[in-house]
Design a protein around this nucleic acid. Structure first.
Lengths: 206, 206
DNA sequence: GTCTATACTGTGATAGAC
DNA sequence: GTCTATCACAGTATAGAC
């Protein structure tokens, strides 16, 4: 692996573990056994590292956030997979979610980009709900779908952070509970005959 | 107002506006037209200011987080009032919620205290649900009440933060949307004849 | 109680040799 | 590409005069 690449990998690791503001360029260089000067040869400054990591994050996120195919029935299994992929990805770049206001302010245009991701997330959540309604799996009014999509988007955004607070900073890489929690927002709107899937999940995570 | 008191008030204002890590003791002193030395006469260090503000926060929070009275029927109006009071209080001390992991780590024992508040929040939410179920306003299983209480607690914790991200840092002191959003988590479990209250709310906030 | 002056530290970042 | 040396600066905190 090239040094530039190693800097990114190491930074991501340290940012995720200790939080971006608590990781200095010296920590990163030390961890890699290179000099700070070398680090600054590859990146103009710390923000450039953050920005590049953010771009990696956004690229993959956009791949995950595709609207469900319209030619096929949407099932709860589809939804489960979507939520799970999303949580895995957020977990990989969780440093971004730790202090969103300051991180988004630190690099120009990041706030706009991140909000676009949130918009997209909300649209996909809405599309999934509408798909589930179309095939009778779910029952809900337009207003309900709207506030539900927002609540799901919000929970997806902050659940891992909340869990971290609840566990007093101890990392538990178990994403299942979060996935369950997000999906439980949807449960009460499910047509009663379609709730078996959620009951199976609850056995695993409650 | 005594200087010590003014330091607390000014700090709270600046912390809320710019975020605690972005406010230095010099900023606080400047804003008050006193010298940094004077500030350090009243507080040993910055963490002591944070800690004292946190204690103010916790004291009032404990007053808000009382379980609903058992001798009286619980209504959706009660719930609305509870959520509203809580959001008002969080808004007043919103700096605490901006970067919870780092803030809770900065002062000893804060993580434990804050988690106790979250536990209490969850218990009150559960008690309200159970009250609403007992008088037929709401219908839900035990598992549903559990995951619902957790989702409500989580949304109460992060909604204002999420709104701030969505508005790209512009403060809008309108708490109504958040109150609606939290209460909408409960709507699908309401007995159909009791949904009028939420429909009135939705007219105001959607 | 309040001020001025100052010490100390950690961090971001650059210059120039190899 | 990588290192060593070093700067500039900001933020925390203290000492001592008034």
């Amino acid at each position: 692996m090239k040094t530039r690449e190693r800097i990114l990998v190491t930074s991501l690791e340290l940012f995720n573990e200790f939080g971006e503001p608590n990781v200095t360029t010296i920590h990163i260089a030390d961890e890699m056994d290179i000099s700070p000067g070398n680090l600054y040869y590859h990146f103009r400054n710390k923000n450039e590292i953050i920005y590049e990591l953010y771009q990696q994050f956004e690229k993959r996120m956009n791949e995950i956030l595709v609207p469900p195919p319209e030619d096929r029935q949407i099932t709860m299994e589809d939804h489960w997979l979507f939520v799970h992929l999303l949580f895995e990805h957020i977990w990989e770049y969780r440093f971004i979610y730790r202090n969103l206001p300051d991180l988004l302010a630190s690099v120009d245009k990041l706030a706009t980009h991140f909000n676009r991701i949130l918009d997209k997330k909300e649209r996909v959540n809405k599309a999934i709900c509408e798909g589930l309604i179309a095939n009778g799996t779910m029952i809900a009014t337009v207003d309900e779908v709207n506030s539900l999509s927002q609540n799901i988007t919000m929970t997806m955004t902050y659940w891992l952070n909340y869990e971290n607070v609840r566990n007093k900073g101890k990392h538990t890489e178990d994403l299942g509970k979060g996935v369950y929690q997000v999906m439980s927002l949807l449960t009460p709107y499910l047509e009663p005959t379609h709730r078996a899937f959620m009951q199976d999940l609850s056995k695993k995570y409650l």
